[in-house]
Structure formats: structure tokens, C-alpha cells
Nucleic acid binder design. Structure first.
Lengths: 209, 209
DNA sequence: AAGATGATCTTTACGCCGTCCAGATTCAGA
DNA sequence: TCTGAATCTGGACGGCGTAAAGATCATCTT
């Protein structure tokens, strides 16, 4: 008797069920949305019994955490690419912000999981803002490149936080239909994002003070 | 046989079960958080059978919508109060932003429900941004009072949207522990909010352009 | 090589959930 | 007063997260 999903032939026990579960979860997240993502559905998609995941994750939340972790890694990578491709400091800053919003827009369900699992712990995961290649550090470093005062740690963090607020706020707003006419008037979504950032100042110009 | 919750003696059928259900939901939301808010629990809290709510709401989502609606009304009122109490235009703008964030902070579960039920419809509810007393219109009007060009509708909407992004982003960030040391360093949460807004420009100064 | 050990997976079960349906109760209008 | 509609109850269904107990299988010890 064959499983319908992605199993085919299982070598010993499964091989790497943990990996398979995370992949199945991300597949379901894309295709069915966040509300349809149940532990049982993930197990089903991976071709395994409903209780099997408990040997790899303490509970559903821990599986979601693992999915969120990969989301942050993807976001960090995408922003690094955006920064690398930009030439001027100005472009780097704006590019980072636009890249952030575009990620949220391209992976809305994943983006939601990333913040939901953060909110439970009342903290963004460390690798999302503490490691060298993190989105947070990339923004902060760009502010430094732009001439921000390295010695004023507080102000540097404030600026980075402000940028994060702007980007996250924009990421949540852009999917609301109420702004569609602005996108049209400005000639596309990216123009809308850039225009909003311009009003917020922070991504449009480095503001060493 | 008496119910344990808030029923006591029911006159005819219940009186106004719709009202009672919304109140029960908000009570549970405050005390138990958003994850614990099930339709059955709400019915239980209201002292009524699990199927009773279906005579007043199409499904769970519609009950949540009603709760969200009251949340937006509360937010609009709180922001109107903040604006009325401020004297200068500067104070009005900053006060609106601070008031928004404070609301989200004081009612985190309600704030979550407000945006979750919006996201499902891909639109903020009309009364949250279209009526005269809405938070959106209050911010926009203040920009006008501050000298924004009334004829440039697009730019005015962009500015208002930008302000909303900043406030919402800040509202989501402020509960993360990773910023606690900034709150301490700046001498309180409100100072942290104001300093961040200052970096974002938009709430710190009207920016007619 | 053989058997023990422990990790992995399945089966079964429990209580909670959202929702539907059939019947009871009560209100309102003729 | 009778009738019909609105409101509420009780019970049922399938899906959920998760725990416990048993089966299976890779690996380690001797």
C-alpha cells in the first residue's frame, strides 16, 4: 500500500522526517494559507501518522518556530542580495526596505508565521536581529556606512528600529485594497512603497544627526 | 438551576444575547488572550448553549468582526481625545501617533483581533478610515491643519498612509523585549515611542511638500 | 553473531473545537 | 386565542492538538 503524498519508499524509519515535516508545512502554507495549517495536515502531507511529529517537535508551536526560522533566513538572504546589488548608499537603504516589503508580499503566510511565533515569546528570534548577516544588522551597518555616529549606540538602534517599524508597517498595509488606487496613480506597487518610504524619510536618506 | 456566569434571570429569551456575546468575548479576550477565545467559551461565558450564537452571527468570524468593530470605535475615540487635548499642531500629530501605539499596548489581544479580521477581507473596515471621526481622517485633517496641500490628494493620502505604517509598525514592535534597554535608556516607553517617531519624521513635524 | 537498547513510528483514545440539525420554548401579530 | 416566526437547547459529526502504549527497526555491546 503506497502513500499518496511524498513518501514512496521509506528506507529505515523515514530518513529525515524533521526536514520532511518542515517542507510539508511550507508547502501547505503556500497552497492553503495559514489557517489550514494543522499538525495533522502536515503529517498527512508528509505521509506519516498524526503523532509522528512529536518525536521531532515538542508541539505544534515548535514546528511553526522551525518554519519561521527558515523564513527569517530567506528574508536575510534576500535583503543581503538587494543590498549587494545596489550601488549608492541611498540605493542600498531604499533597496533594503523595498526588499523587506516585497518578501512579505511574496510570502504572506510565511511572513505571518514569522511574526506570530515571535509574538508568543515577546521577542524576535536572535538570528533575525543579532547575527552579522541578519536584516537588522544589514540596516544598521548601512546607516553607519551612510555616516551615522557609531559612538551614539542609542541613536543608531533607534534609527534601525524606526526603519524596521516603517518596513513592517508598510508590509502589513500593502495588501489592503484601500490603497489600490494609490498604486495605480503612482504607477505600480514598488512606486507606492518608495513614495511611502520617502514620506517616512528613513529609507529615503540616511539621517545621521 | 442557576448559571455560573452572567445570566442570573433571563427575562424572555435572553434579552439581548448579541450584546452579551460581544461583551463576553471581550471579557475573555482580556483575561485569557486571543488563542483561548473559542465560540464555545464565549457562549459558556454568556451562560448559553454552544449553538445559540448562530442566531446572531453567521459564524465565529462574524462575532470577531463585531468585537473588532468596537475596537476601532474605541481607538477612534481615544485618538480624538488625544488630539483634542493637544494644543499645538505638533502636539496633535505626535499625540495621535502616541495614542495609537498606547491603545495597541493597552489592548494587545483586541488590537490583534482588529487586524486579523481586517486581513481576512484584505481591507480595513470602512469606519476605520472613511468616517469623519475615524483615526485615518483625524490624521489626514491634522496634516491639512499643518499646511499640507489640500489639492494634492495623492500626496495627502501617501502621508497619512505613511503615518499609519509608522504607528502600526511601532505598535507591533514595542512589545518585543529586545527594545527594553532602549526604553530604559530613554526613560520610559513614551519617550521611546516619541524618539522613534522623531526618526520617522512624520509624527514629529508636518511635512507639507 | 546475538541480543539488548533506544529511537522512531502507529494505533488508539481523550477532550475541545466549529458547525449543523431537529426539537422545545417563547414572543408577536391576527 | 391561535399561528407563525424568532430564539434557544441537546445531540451529533468530523477535525483538531496531544498523550500513552505498543510495534518496528538501526545501532551498540559483548
Amino acid at each position: 500500500m503506497r502513500e499518496t503524498a511524498a513518501a514512496e519508499n521509506r528506507p529505515y524509519h523515514h530518513g529525515d522526517l524533521r526536514r520532511a515535516l518542515i517542507d510539508a508545512a511550507r508547502r501547505l502554507l503556500e497552497s492553503e494559507g495559514p489557517t489550514a495549517l494543522s499538525l495533522r495536515a502536515v503529517a498527512r502531507e508528509a505521509g506519516v501518522s498524526p503523532a509522528a511529529p512529536y518525536h521531532h517537535f515538542k508541539d505544534k508551536g515548535e514546528l511553526l518556530d522551525a518554519v519561521a526560522h527558515e523564513g527569517w533566513d530567506m528574508l536575510n538572504a534576500q535583503m543581503a542580495k538587494a543590498k549587494a546589488e545596489a550601488t549608492t548608499i541611498q540605493d542600498k537603504l531604499t533597496g533594503l526596505g523595498v526588499s523587506y516589503v516585497r518578501f512579505a508580499q511574496a510570502n504572506p503566510a510565511l511572513y505571518r508565521v514569522m511574526y506570530d511565533s515571535s509574538r508568543d515569546k515577546e521577542a524576535l528570534p536572535d538570528h533575525a536581529h543579532m547575527q552579522d548577516d541578519s536584516a537588522y544588522c544589514q540596516v544598521r551597518d548601512t546607516f553607519i556606512e551612510a555616516g551615522a555616529d557609531v559612538n551614539n549606540e542609542i541613536d543608531l538602534e533607534l534609527a534601525t528600529n524606526a526603519a524596521w517599524c516603517a518596513a513592517h508597517g508598510m508590509a502589513e498595509m500593502i495588501s489592503f485594497k484601500m490603497f489600490d488606487h494609490l498604486k495605480v496613480a503612482l504607477g505600480g506597487e514598488e512606486a507606492f512603497i518608495r513614495a511611502t518610504f520617502q514620506h517616512l524619510g528613513i529609507f529615503a536618506a540616511a539621517r545621521p544627526r
